[in-house]
Computed example of a mutant assay.
Amino acid sequence: MDRGGAETMMMNYLRHMDRSKVTYDFLVNRTYKAAYEDEIEKLGGRIYRMCPMYPQYFGRYKKEFRAFLKKHPEYRIIHSNLEERSYFGLREAAKAGVPVRIAHAHNRPVGFDVKSVFREYFRMRLPRYVTHMFACGEEAGDWLFGRRNRDRVIQQRNAIDTAQYRYDPAVAAEVRAEFGTADGTFVLGHVGRFFPQKNHEFLIDIFAALHAIRPDSELWLVGGGELNDELKNKIREKVAALGLGDAVRFLGVRSDVNRIMQGMDAFVLPSLFEGLPVTMIEAQSSGLPCTISDRVPIQCDVTGNVQVVALDAAPEEWAKRILAQAESYYGGNDVAAAEGGAAYAVKREQGPELVTKAGFDIVANAEWLQRFYLDELAKAEAAGRAMEHVGTSSQ
């Protein structure tokens, strides 16, 4: 439960539900205390721990999960966010008679590596053990459940509290002053964990090209990495080697992404693959013009303020497109001159309304999910009682 996309999505829903009717307890696969755990407990949730889900632990995981369900028969709904690895837990849950078993697709892996063999094996066997299929977007659902099951997949939106992301010039100035960013500096932002999927190495190449065109620019990188920060450290070394140390800011894991985005001028996501990233909904709610790779589902454009650039395009092409989009978006040839002006603010302030209109505000979505849990459990339990009655009558 660190500050990743799926984790943030679950927390957004938890915060906005009637917790006298529905709450979340979390079964996690890490021994360390993660970023959201204190808040989970304050909101009435409990946290249980099990072994990691690495191949060498698969057998142990199944035994531990089986024992967990036997010890906790009170859990009648399991909402699994483990992609293809949901197979393990939901298979055991089906055997134990848990009536509502949800598998949730958050990503759309591409390419082939050793992990792909396991992924394919488990995702092909997953559907028979689920009662409900959720996905953040169509492409993620097609990957995890197969197109043959498209009619069964429920699109659960990666909704956010849009009001928290409304642009405020005073907050923007405060954030920039905090980071020592000079007035008129063009700030390109990125939010994402330092995992290969997010393509940070290419992102640095893009910024190097952009910085060559516009020296008064900065790149803000929000996000943590692996426990040993191997990739993050590699990116730091690359930044230093390119002489960009003063222009690239590693902001780490933040609890105030909504505030940090106020200080950005544009947002970029050159990922190798995605589902439907929460961070794109956040960026658009902040009123930022966004540039994504052609590997990111176009469904994440909910405001019309997102442009797509081919992943195989040169960094220089990315840089030119990002700057041109920003100038066009803010209505002038100089973004720096527009900053702080009325037109700039008006453009940014439109974000929450556009995202809400697209159906991604958390209030309505949390109400929907709460009703879904309660209604589906009631249906499943009624069906179970009917089957018991039939069995009794036939004896």
Results as ranks from 00 to 15, higher is better:
F250H: 04
N107C: 09
A240K: 12
G224W: 03
Y165D: 06
L231K: 13
A324K: 11
E230N: 12
R152V: 03
F273Q: 04
H16N: 15
L90K: 08
G263N: 05
I154R: 12
L227S: 09
F134H: 07
V335M: 01
F207H: 11
E381Y: 05
S116L: 01
L323I: 12
T356V: 03
R254Y: 06
A241K: 15
S217D: 06
Y75C: 07
G384E: 13
C290H: 00
A326C: 11
E226I: 07
E7N: 13
G141Y: 03
I78N: 00
E353M: 13
R30S: 14
N305V: 03
R371T: 13
A313K: 12
V253R: 04
R147W: 05
A343F: 06
N199E: 06
E274C: 13
Q395T: 07
I77S: 00
Y129C: 04
D312T: 14
V222G: 01
E367Y: 05
D2V: 07
E178A: 12
A96I: 08
D113P: 06
K95C: 05
V309S: 06
L219T: 03
Y129T: 04
T392E: 11
L242V: 02
P55A: 09
M133H: 01
R85H: 12
P196E: 04
Y167V: 12
H79N: 15
L14T: 01
R214D: 05
G252K: 08
L14R: 03
N158C: 15
A6N: 06
P109M: 03
K70V: 09
I206S: 06
A6M: 11
F267Q: 01
F372H: 08
D246P: 02
L251R: 07
L43H: 02
G340V: 10
Y165R: 04
R119L: 08
H72S: 08
F372I: 00
R119N: 15
R125K: 15
D301T: 10
V28N: 02
H16T: 03
H200D: 14
E274A: 13
H389Q: 14
A342R: 10
L188Q: 05
R236C: 11
A241L: 07
L288A: 01
M387T: 09
P297W: 00
K234T: 15
Y75W: 00
E41A: 14
I235M: 14
R60G: 11
V296Y: 08
I47P: 06
D301Y: 07
R76A: 03
R76S: 06
V296K: 06
D18I: 10
I298V: 15
A93G: 13
A182M: 09
M9A: 08
P55I: 10
L126R: 08
L377Q: 09
M261R: 00
I281A: 01
